[in-house]
Design a binder for these strands. Sequence first.
DNA 1: GAGTGGTCTAGACCACGGA
DNA 2: CCGTGGTCTAGACCACTCC
Lengths: 253, 253
Amino acid sequence: MGTTQLESVPEPKYWHLKTVLSEALDSEFAVGEILPNERDLAARFGVARATLRQALEQLELEGRLQRRRGVGTTVAPPRMGVSVGSEQHAWPGGPHDAWHAVDCRLEVPPAALAETLVTATDEAVHIVRRSRVSRGQPVASELLYIPSASVPDLSGIDAPSGAARARAVLRELQRLELERQENAVELGSAGADAAKELDRLPGAPVLVVTTRHIARGRTAALSVATYRADTCRLTFGDSGGVEIHHGPERQAS
Amino acid sequence: MGTTQLESVPEPKYWHLKTVLSEALDSEFAVGEILPNERDLAARFGVARATLRQALEQLELEGRLQRRRGVGTTVAPPRMGVSVGSEQHAWPGGPHDAWHAVDCRLEVPPAALAETLVTATDEAVHIVRRSRVSRGQPVASELLYIPSASVPDLSGIDAPSGAARARAVLRELQRLELERQENAVELGSAGADAAKELDRLPGAPVLVVTTRHIARGRTAALSVATYRADTCRLTFGDSGGVEIHHGPERQAS
DNA sequence: GAGTGGTCTAGACCACGGA
DNA sequence: CCGTGGTCTAGACCACTCC
């Protein structure tokens, strides 16, 4: 009879909160604007701070907010499109490359990668570290694993390490004819090292792009790049990609 | 002097916990095995349940664990590679398509998409809903936005709605010559609708793949597909992709 | 009904950034 | 120094699955 169970599945408070905040973000806040602090917001909505934080966490995951300890919570700009696959059939370090080399070491790679690299599990490879900056902020950090076999002629390279050597190794790589590359994307969380480089806390969500560069039928190089998931939209294929907006976007004055 | 500040930056408990658990997962547990419940684990490690949960959350985000209410926490199998870009230059619904059509509606798309679709903001388009299953479990849910202009000859289609109509619309789409497609990947969280279809709770992390299908220089169709981020590794380009393992993988008996 | 993970509370202290 | 977000605690109750 009459007792129709409206809200028989009551949605969690944090979920409702997220919705309310999301709408407020669209209509009442400008990009870059600072939100009230968490204690105030929690009080205003009549919930515990932990609950409020659960909602903020989701919004940050979706790239709507940016939180920084000691500073506050700000409205994030729309994610930037970062091209990943358009350098199709191009070696790392080639012209128009968005990366810049940091350093280069000669080390034994993690056992998990040896299989893909088709090297012995105890064979050292060149590991080039690179970083990528877009619109003034770091967006990705990469480790490039290059078996010695891919860059046979490294004599005459004076720099024993550092950025200069990294560039030299990449230059050597260009001499191989690139057949194709295979990309994979998955969700991960930033390790302590990558976190520092991306200016995030450890554990921050990242998109891990694994690229296998294939030349002469063999894996000539393996790249593992971690992109900030909060600020980046990865674009594959041809051009800059699709523009999606959540709602009205204004700029903080 | 002498008081060298070891652990001047003490790592958070949950972070340390995550590391310990991660190693235990590699060495002491088999895929599919059920972990002790959260209260026991928390007690065993001498932390509050909330802290233990923070560690489990991270491991689930990384695809190492799977948690189900009323059941328990199990060790997840390695992520499955799901091909996304290899159907390059193929329309949705073509042969070897991993999707299966669910239904089709004629509706006005969200304003955020109208711009990309190059339609008037109040113009209705065909919205085909599809789902994708891999290894027996749902991995993705998709909404395909197809302007009427892309499928001009829909007369003679008897089915007014449902899966039959969806297939008919896709069949019509095949007649256009596909120029190219542009893909973008970003992190999102599952809405209530997608969550149900993916057998996850709302807010679960998903990888949103936006694909713009271009024919005759215009956007002929726009696809927004949400993949389960915990179980999927998206592969772009040629073949099945790169295999990465965390450590020893065993199978539950 | 028993046991699981999911939500929520009301506190506390800590680490960091900026004035 | 203060105010911010980040971590942590010790409880409570709820929703779900399975027996």
